[in-house]
């Protein structure tokens, strides 16, 4: 069924009548606006869009979108969304989650959703802190980080969302800074177009409990030099002057300067997001410098609903049962006079 329409919507069509209640200066506003701008471009009918969230600051998101939505319970949004998508594959289903919601209390649903490859878009707001419960460390907080529940420093090593996701068979993983709305909008569009589970990690600044935690690579002044924005089929070049690039040296990625030591653009690795083997994608995810943004992995694969649908069609075409009567009155039945 074709659920797309011509570009008749503007971002305003997706804003609900509810007052947005995040803290002033929060990146969540940027993400909300980027989504409201992405949806008209994607062109799916409003009534076919569903936002499902768990618990946390980010999970208030569905209330602000004038689509169908469910603000559910902590950590369970991927499982709810899986049910919604399997029940009606025509819907465009988005999961809104945070670092605690997806990787602590909801870790199990998160990895299994990725493994199954249902056509969902999971939007992960990672701020490396618990915001709504007012400042405890999260599963992505750094070792040593001082928080309300770790006054002497966090002792638990963090997850990397991308590493975890790719380890859990994620076919699509993208990462973006919370202060780059234009690129974010483009990534949302790409994620929706991808058939299968798409995970987008937004490095989202919490101005209240973890302010500036991503500044070393998201701050406008250093962004161009500290971030590599990858695009499929293009060389991995970054830097204000576009003169830095990545090469593979043995089993490690290495930053090289173009124009030095006879290195030319030709030597720089070309990004292949569609490669099935996730080895290089994992290495890009793990890199601290430069911090890799953009669509890191986008491997096309059959979705769970496609598999299930094919099986159902086959069973239906081979089965002698059309109505429940056919089943109930089949096999070992007997008459009592």
């Amino acid at each position: 069924m074709d659920t797309t329409v011509e570009n008749k919507y503007t971002f305003k069509d997706f804003a609900s009548d509810q007052e947005v209640r995040w803290c002033p200066g929060c990146d969540d506003y940027v993400i909300l606006r980027a989504m409201q701008k992405a949806l008209p471009e994607i062109g799916v009918k409003k009534e076919d869009i569903v936002f499902i969230s768990g618990i946390g600051c980010s999970s208030r998101f569905p209330y602000y979108m004038d689509t169908y939505g469910m603000h559910s319970i902590h950590g369970r949004a991927p499982a709810i969304a899986t049910g919604t998508k399997l029940a009606n594959p025509n819907l465009s289903v988005w999961v809104i989650t945070g670092d605690g919601d997806s990787m602590a209390i909801g870790g199990n649903h998160f990895i299994h959703a990725l493994r199954r490859n249902v056509d969902l878009n999971i939007l992960l707001f990672n701020n490396e802190i618990y915001g709504l419960t007012k400042g405890q460390f999260s599963p992505t907080s750094l070792v040593g980080q001082k928080t309300k529940s770790s006054p002497y420093g966090n002792t638990q090593p963090p997850f990397s969302a991308g590493e975890l996701a790719i380890g859990a068979q994620a076919r699509f993983f993208a990462r973006i800074g919370g202060n780059t709305p234009k690129e974010m909008t483009q990534i949302f569009i790409e994620a929706e177009k991808f058939k299968g589970t798409s995970l987008i990690e937004v490095m989202q600044n919490c101005p209240i409990f973890n302010d500036g935690c991503f500044d070393q690579f998201t701050d406008k002044a250093v962004r161009a030099d500290k971030q590599l924005f990858v695009e499929h089929g293009k060389p991995m070049i970054f830097g204000k002057d576009r003169n830095q690039g990545l090469v593979l040296n043995g089993l490690k990625l290495e930053v090289v300067a173009i124009g030095e030591n006879n290195i030319t653009e030709e030597d720089i690795l070309v990004h292949d997001a569609k490669e099935q083997d996730p080895t290089l994608h994992q290495m890009l995810v793990r890199l601290d410098y430069p911090k890799v943004m953009g669509v890191i992995r986008s491997f096309n694969d059959i979705t769970l609903e496609e598999r299930k649908d094919a099986q159902t069609q086959e069973v239906k075409s081979n089965s002698k049962f059309r109505k429940t009567d056919d089943l109930f009155f089949s096999g070992d039945i007997y008459e009592v006079e």
Binding site: V50, I52, Y68, M70, S72, I73, R76, A79, I80, A81, T82, G83, T84, K85, L86, A87, N88, L91, N108, H109, H112
Partner: peptide, 14 residues
């Protein structure tokens, strides 16, 4: 938990 929550999601979808 995913057993019941997936069912809630399916119910939401009709």
């Amino acid at each position: 938990i995913a057993g019941i929550t997936s069912a809630i999601g399916a119910s939401f979808a009709g």
